[in-house]
Design a protein around this nucleic acid. Structure first.
Lengths: 334, 334
DNA sequence: TTGAAAGCGCTAACAA
DNA sequence: TTGTTAGCGCTTTCAA
C-alpha cells in the first residue's frame, strides 16, 4: 500500500502538504493541489485509518448499540440502523455495530478509542448501561429517554405526545371508550422508555377528556394478536376506539377484529402507531401516527456530530408526532 | 487515558513486557505478569486501537456488508447479522456495518486498513461488487454463491439441495403436481444467488421424478401473498403440493390457502423454506427446511478467521438442508 | 526471562 | 504558500 510519503515524493511536495490537501485545513495553491491529487490517483493512495486515528485522535467511526433481539420490532430497528448508517456516511463516518447484550462493548470501543461517538437504542427508564458510560470521553446519544438524562443527548419520537394525540383524535370523533394494544410483556417489564411514555400520554389525555381506557399488552405474533384482541373485547366489550402500537401484530389485530365482527371504521375506529409505510400497506389503510425511525436515526447522528465538531452541549429532542388520517377512524355510533 | 508506558512505569517493567503480557506472545514469569496485570487494573488501561492497528496491521474489526433494503427478509437478515456479530466477538473482533448500496465502502474500509476481513451478504450471480474486490488484501467471505467463485470463500445453505429435498419429500408422499411460491420479483431480477439456486434444484428434481411444477414469484406482503396464491391456483388448479420460500408472506399464504378451501395438509401439502422458529410459530406448524441464518453467519466468521490466522485457502461450504416434518405434508389424495 | 529501540503512517505545531 | 519534524501509542526485532 502506498503511504503519504510515497504520494509526497511522487508529487514532489512534503508530506504535510499532502496531509493538508487531504484535510483542507490550510490553503494550498491550485497547481500544488492538482499535482498531489494526481499522485493520489495514480498510486491509489488511501490514508491508513489507524495511523490517522493515532495522530489525530479521531477515528471517523461511531458505535451503534442496537437490540438484535427477537421480541422488538425488527423492521423498525432496521430503519433506525439504516438512518444512522446512511447519515453517518454523510458525515464521513462509518458505523461499528454493537449488540445490546454486549454491555462491555461500550467500554471496549470507547476506552480503546475505536469510535468518536456512541449511539444507543432501546433505552430503558433505569438503563443498566448508563452507569457504564461514566468516564467515557466520547459524546453519547440515547435514542429514547432514561429517567435521568444527566448529560446525555437524547432523541426520540414524543411518545407521550403521541399517546395524547391518539386519544385526542378518537375523542374528537366522539369515542368515550378506548383501548390500547401495546408492546409485548417483555418490553414493558424492561421499562422500555417509549412504551411507558406512550401509556402515560394515553392515560393522561384520557383522564383529561374523561375517556374510559384499557391497556392490553400484545405479543408480536399472530396468536399474540388474537389473544390481545380477545382480552380487550372481554375487558371492554363496548370499546369503540383503539390505538395499536405493535407493528408485527398489526395485520393480525386487524383480521382478528374483523372476525370478531368489528369492521374498521364502522365497528371500531383504529389508530396505529407505526411507520407510515406500514400503515399504508395494510389491506385497509390505517390512520396512524408515524414512527419516523429513519429521521430519528439521522437526528441522532447529527447530534453526535454537533457535539464533536462544535462541542455543542447535550440536549433532548422529542420529535412532534404526526397523525395522518387514512379513514380507519370515524365518528362514534354510526 | 493511560498508555502502555504508564503501565510499564507503574509495574516497573519495560513497555515490551507489558505488550507481551497482553498478547501472550512470549513467556512472562508469574510475578512479573501479576505486577503488570495489577498496574493495568489500577490504571484502567486499554490499548489504543489505532496505535495497535498501526503497529501490528491488525484491527480486530471485520466489515459486514448487509442489505438494509425493504424487499429482502428483514428477520433473516437480522439473524445473519446477529450470527456474525456474536461469533466475531468470540474471536475478539468487532463488526463494522456497511450497507449494500455503499459499494465504495468496500474499498474505503479495505484500502484504509480499517478491517481485517470482509463478509458480504446477498450475493448475486454476477455481483457488481465482486470486481471492486480485486486488489484487496483482506480475505473476503461471500454469503451466497456468485457464478464464479474465483478465490473467494463462500458459504450458504445448499439451496439447490433444498429445492431437491422439498420436491423429493412431496413426491415421496405421492404428489405429482407441485408449486413453488418464491422470492419477490426484485430479488429474482437481481439474480440473487439463493433464489436462482432454489429454483434450479426444484426444477431439476421435479424433472427427474417426473413431477409437474409451476413457480410463482411472491411479494413480501399480505396482498402479494394473496396474488401469488391466486396465480398459483389459476395456473395449476389441481396442485397438491407447495413449497413456500418467503418468510414474510408465509402466514398470509397459509390464510389465503385456507380461504381458497385448501386446508393444510388435506387440501394441500406445504413445505416452508424458512428459519425453524418461524415454521414452528405458525398457527399450523409447518414442515420446513431450515434456513440456518445464525449458523451461516457464524461459519462466515470462522472462515474469515481461519484465513487470517492459519492462512487457510478459500473454500466453498454449502450447508446440507435439514427437513423437519411438522405434519403440514401428507399423502396425496386422502 | 526481560529490555531497548526502531518503526508503523499519519497530523499539526513550528518555522520559513 | 510550503517544509521540517516531533510525536501519537503501540508491536516486534534484536540484544542481553
Amino acid at each position: 500500500m502506498a503511504t503519504i510519503d510515497d504520494v509526497a515524493r511522487t508529487a514532489g511536495v512534503s508530506t504535510s502538504t499532502v496531509s493538508y490537501v487531504l484535510s483542507g485545513k490550510r490553503p494550498i495553491s491550485a497547481p500544488t493541489r492538482h499535482r498531489v491529487e494526481k499522485a493520489i490517483r495514480e498510486l491509489g493512495y488511501r490514508p491508513h485509518a489507524g495511523a490517522r486515528a493515532l495522530a489525530s485522535s479521531r477515528t471517523n467511526v461511531i458505535a451503534l448499540m442496537a437490540p438484535l433481539r427477537a421480541d422488538v420490532n425488527v423492521n423498525v430497528i432496521m430503519q433506525f440502523v439504516t438512518g444512522v448508517v446512511t447519515s453517518a456516511r454523510a458525515f464521513e463516518h462509518d458505523v461499528l455495530l454493537l449488540t445490546q447484550d454486549d454491555a462491555a462493548g461500550l467500554d471496549r470501543v470507547a476506552s480503546g478509542s475505536m469510535v468518536d461517538a456512541l449511539i444507543m437504542m432501546d433505552i430503558e427508564a433505569e438503563d443498566p448501561r448508563i452507569p457504564l458510560l461514566t468516564g467515557i470521553k466520547q459524546p453519547t446519544i440515547l435514542i429514547g429517554l432514561p429517567r435521568h438524562t444527566q448529560g446525555f443527548s437524547c432523541v426520540d419520537l414524543d411518545f407521550e405526545g403521541a399517546g395524547r394525540a391518539a386519544v385526542e383524535h378518537l375523542a374528537g370523533h366522539g369515542h368515550r371508550r378506548v383501548g390500547l394494544l401495546g408492546s409485548p410483556h417483555g418490553v414493558l417489564e424492561r421499562h422500555t422508555s417509549y412504551a411507558e411514555r406512550l401509556v402515560r400520554g394515553f392515560r393522561t389525555e384520557a383522564a383529561e377528556l374523561d375517556v374510559d381506557v384499557v391497556t392490553v399488552p400484545c405479543e408480536s405474533s399472530q396468536t399474540g394478536a388474537r389473544t390481545a384482541v380477545d382480552a380487550l373485547l372481554a375487558e371492554m366489550p363496548d370499546v369503540t376506539g383503539l390505538v395499536v402500537h405493535n407493528e408485527v401484530a398489526l395485520p393480525y389485530v386487524v383480521s382478528a377484529l374483523r372476525e370478531a365482527g368489528r369492521g374498521i371504521p364502522d365497528g371500531l375506529s383504529v389508530v396505529a402507531l407505526c411507520p407510515a409505510d406500514v400503515a399504508e400497506g395494510q389491506p385497509v389503510p390505517l390512520t396512524s401516527i408515524d414512527i419516523p425511525a429513519l429521521t430519528i436515526g439521522r437526528v441522532a447522528v447529527e447530534m453526535a456530530m454537533a457535539r464533536l465538531d462544535h462541542d455543542q452541549p447535550a440536549e433532548t429532542r422529542l420529535l412532534t408526532p404526526q397523525l395522518t388520517d387514512r379513514g380507519s377512524t370515524g365518528p362514534h355510533g354510526r
